[in-house]
């Protein structure tokens, strides 16, 4: 059952990314490029995606478990740490450079050509080397 739900969620995510135009790097870069031909699409996608999630989070309160029996995620951690800021800045730089983030990079695999595949492999490599780099940041934060 968990697998079927995960498959459905992934399928909806892929459909939404394709419909919204977020697998088109010119739309993402068009939103980030405030000095170019500014494209507001991304804001509508974000807003549209947040609405059902607002309802979903509300529905988790007062319930003990998810449909398949597992626990809901713990409350969001409050602390903003070095990892969050440094990681988000690095991610943003890559996102601005190419106009792809992890979801669209996977969703567009079938029509993104060689470049899309190269991006995905590089991204996976980055994810593979990230844990020790993150641990190093934690040590630096503790030493400071």
């Amino acid at each position: 059952m968990r697998l079927i739900i995960a498959l459905i969620a992934g399928s909806l995510f892929g459909a939404g990314l394709l419909i919204s135009g977020m697998t088109d790097t010119t739309k993402v870069q068009g939103w980030l490029d405030v000095f170019g031909n500014w494209d507001p699409t991304l804001a509508f996608v974000m807003g549209g995606a947040i609405l059902p999630m607002l309802v979903a989070w509300r529905m988790t309160t007062g319930r003990q478990n998810a449909l398949t029996g597992g626990a809901f995620p713990p409350p969001a951690k409050p602390e903003v740490d070095r990892r969050l800021i440094v990681g988000s800045v690095l991610f943003g730089m890559g996102w601005g450079l190419a106009g792809l983030c992890p979801g669209p990079a996977m969703a567009s695999l079938s029509y993104g050509g060689l470049g899309g595949l190269v991006f995905l492999v590089a991204m996976a490599a980055g994810m593979f080397v990230a844990p020790p780099l993150g641990a190093q940041l934690d040590r630096a934060a503790n030493a400071a």
Binding site: F13, G16, S20, F44, V45, P52, A56, M59, A66, T68
Partner: peptide, 27 residues
């Protein structure tokens, strides 16, 4: 184009809702 953005966004949010309420996971 923004209408497609909004529609696609709603589907993305629905995906997140299914994953959260169904499996208790953050998408």
């Amino acid at each position: 184009e923004w209408i497609w953005g909004l529609c696609g966004g709603l589907v993305i949010g629905l995906a997140g809702a299914v994953y959260l309420l169904g499996n208790g996971r953050i998408m």
